[in-house]
């Protein structure tokens, strides 16, 4: 089963929940944690892991072959992203603006722009005492996160069978990368804080998850620090509250030290048990 952990904005505790939940489940089950927050993959920072292998990931971009080019510059006109420019008898390609649509390459009358793989990031497979992890990491300045997320998911599906619980740490926000990360999971756990910012961003995330058509529920992080507006909203919208992680300075301190909080904070472990019980009742585990 695949379960995604997502949030409308960064910093609400998404990585905290996914690393703790995956390891807690890993004590009794086979678990793989896929870090799909490829712009800031941080989950490995919190887990004592050994890297099994790392390989480069690629995207396809056009390479200009000067001998074949007739300088018609139709490619520049075709590109809707301004990724190609014609100056002084040269075609320059800007890989970070390219969306790999192939239009320039396939419409070039003299085949002067063959598509070739270029490194866009890295995929790492690691293992701790309790779980496996797969992390996609996008190169700095690279903007096409969606393709790397899709490649990371493919790796997970290829190497882990149905007997393994798959936890996806999704990128924050409501745009294409988040949609890509959740589009084939069985269930989405949205994590939020009981504050006006948390509620506002939760509403956007709910709108997105509903647009994609996924079953979902909410975990409230730092419960007790804010107000009841998130609870009231979930009640009014008939959204399941899966668990409430209590507000506790000890959780923040464990995070700051790069440690898993459930091992030292009893209230946090209680909340994880609630998540597991909920998932079992839903037939997700």
């Amino acid at each position: 089963m695949k379960i995604a952990i997502a949030s409308g904005k960064g910093g609400t505790g998404k990585t905290t929940l996914s690393t703790n939940l995956a390891t807690f489940l890993g004590e009794t089950k086979r678990v793989v944690l896929a870090d799909l927050d490829v712009e800031e993959p941080n989950s490995k920072l919190f887990i004592d892991a050994q890297i099994l292998k790392t390989h480069d990931t690629f995207k396809m971009i056009p390479r200009w072959v000067s001998q074949a080019c007739t300088q018609c510059a139709q490619c520049v006109e075709v590109c809707n992203y301004n990724a190609l420019i014609h100056i002084a008898n040269e075609i320059l390609v800007f890989p970070n603006l390219c969306h790999s649509c192939y239009a320039c390459s396939e419409l070039c009358p003299t085949q002067a722009l063959p598509m070739e793989p270029q490194k866009m990031g890295e995929l790492t497979h690691w293992r701790s005492d309790w779980i496996d992890g797969v992390e996609g990491r996008l190169n700095i300045g690279e903007e096409q996160a969606v393709s790397l997320i899709s490649q990371t998911k493919k790796y997970v599906e290829k190497y882990f069978g149905d007997d393994t619980v798959k936890i996806y740490d999704a990128p924050p926000g409501t745009s294409c990368p988040m949609v890509e990360a959740i589009k084939d999971v069985a269930f989405v756990i949205l994590i939020t804080e009981p504050t006006p910012f948390g509620l506002h961003d939760l509403k956007l995330a709910v709108e997105t998850v509903r647009a994609v058509g996924k079953a979902f529920g909410v975990v409230i992080n730092q419960h007790g620090i804010g107000n009841d507006a998130v609870l009231d909203y979930c009640r009014a919208e008939a959204i399941d509250i899966i668990a409430k992680i209590p507000h506790d300075r000890a959780v923040a301190m464990a995070y700051a030290r790069g440690e898993l909080a459930y091992r030292s904070v009893a209230g946090f472990k209680e909340a994880l048990r609630d998540v597991v019980a909920f998932c079992e009742a839903k037939g997700l585990l």
Partner: peptide, 21 residues
């Protein structure tokens, strides 16, 4: 519309010119 990245390739190859950007 969610998946479309607006590259315009389809509009260029559509022979009856049925696709508008």
């Amino acid at each position: 519309p969610i998946a479309c990245e607006g590259c315009g390739y389809c509009a260029r190859v559509c022979r009856p010119k049925a696709i508008a950007m």
